[in-house]
Design a protein around this nucleic acid. Structure first.
Lengths: 207, 207
DNA sequence: AAATACAGAGAACAGTTGTTAACTGGATGA
DNA sequence: TCATCCAGTTAACAACTGTTCTCTGTATTT
């Protein structure tokens, strides 16, 4: 049911995307709070004033980038979690999934890691909301597992948050690791996940 | 053996500290990569050129801030880890220690969380080095525990990294939490630590 | 075919930035 | 006491910033 865009709107979206792409690249070596609107338009090759046709400010652009970087991940996470392998293989595949994603979209990952605690309030809030949503989706997926019997929703969310935070940390670690050390980082992340999973198995032993 | 500084050097250190303090405050609502040298000197009330008597650039100042924020923490961490309470109380006290530190030095904590993945390479590296050192110190402390029998050094470092990362995340969470929700965040962090500790207890069950 | 909407261009604005050079005046050391 | 040092000042620079207003040309609508 996707309505074909007119020439005009199509061109507009193209410029908008060019601005987002240019910004993302410029953000590889600086933070959003130092990104200037002129800098972005210069990189794209349009007049500075054209920026205002798409965004109110660079902060506004940042919020759009959050959507671009995290919006499409919900489906991926859902698939990864509902696949039912045995525990150890599931861990290895999850870490591999993260590694692939970082390789495919390094600039997006860097942006999220950087701006999660960055200097622009609205962007922090947008990221926080998305990650909170991830945690809740993970919690829902964990609920389906037989092992979740006896767990409170609160404790499931506690575990889900641990997983999500660990995912972000791992992604960021992949980003700053030289190619020859990637395997070491993978191994580290896997063992950490295995330890957490072990804790999960014994959570109800006596509480 | 601390040699009394001359009037001259004393005054110099005083302005230097004033620059660091002003910068730290300005950094509460922006990132280091957008912090201008004139901005800092204006806040202190000295001429812009005076800045160069103390730092080459704002990146240089950032590295100094890392030292100020994390340098004094090694001793604190050491004390917290060698104290021998039983496990659950130890966890509660650790989380409480973090909460206190965040309340006492919020700007320092914010700075570290923000610049850990921030836009200035040298500062990222300085933080990474300090956190890596923390992890190694935690590993050494874990080694002393009877429970570490049978553990490889690699696995101990794996666990230590998990603790350090969790500490940073928790500190950052305290920072962005309204006073009435602090208890909830404490509870969450404690349960996560308890789960990790549970995994630790069963790590050698069959590997 | 004519009227309108609107993405982008152009020019100009006041204010900001980092950095250089030459200077001042009080603490320091001979 | 006198020469030296040096933390901080003053003034000036070219370059840059976000934002405003006015204009243009083409796609869209009537």
């Amino acid at each position: 049911m996707s309505h074909t865009l007119g020439i005009r709107q199509a061109q507009k979206q193209k410029t908008r995307q060019a601005l987002l792409d240019a910004a993302l690249e410029l953000l590889e070596e600086q933070s959003l709070s130092s990104l200037g609107l002129r800098e972005v338009t210069r990189a794209v090759g349009v007049a500075p004033t054209a920026f205002y046709r798409h965004f109110d400010s660079t902060a506004d652009l940042g919020v759009a980038l959050v959507e671009e970087a995290l919006g499409s991940l919900h489906a991926v996470i859902h698939d990864a979690l509902t696949a039912t392998w045995d525990s150890d293989e599931r861990i290895a595949r999850t870490v591999e999934l993260i590694a692939r994603h970082v390789r495919a979209y390094p600039a997006h990952v860097r942006f999220i890691a950087r701006e999660r605690h960055g200097g622009v309030r609205r962007v922090r809030e947008a990221i926080s909301e998305q990650l909170g949503q991830f945690a809740d989706e993970v919690r829902a997926a964990l609920r389906l597992d037989p092992e979740a019997a006896g767990w409170t929703e609160e404790d499931l969310l506690m575990l889900a948050s641990l997983y999500v935070d660990h995912m972000v940390i791992t992604a960021s670690a992949f980003l700053t690791t030289a190619p020859e050390d990637l395997a070491r980082v993978s191994g580290l992340a896997e063992r950490q996940l295995r330890l957490v999973t072990l804790g999960r198995k014994h959570w109800l032993d006596l509480s």
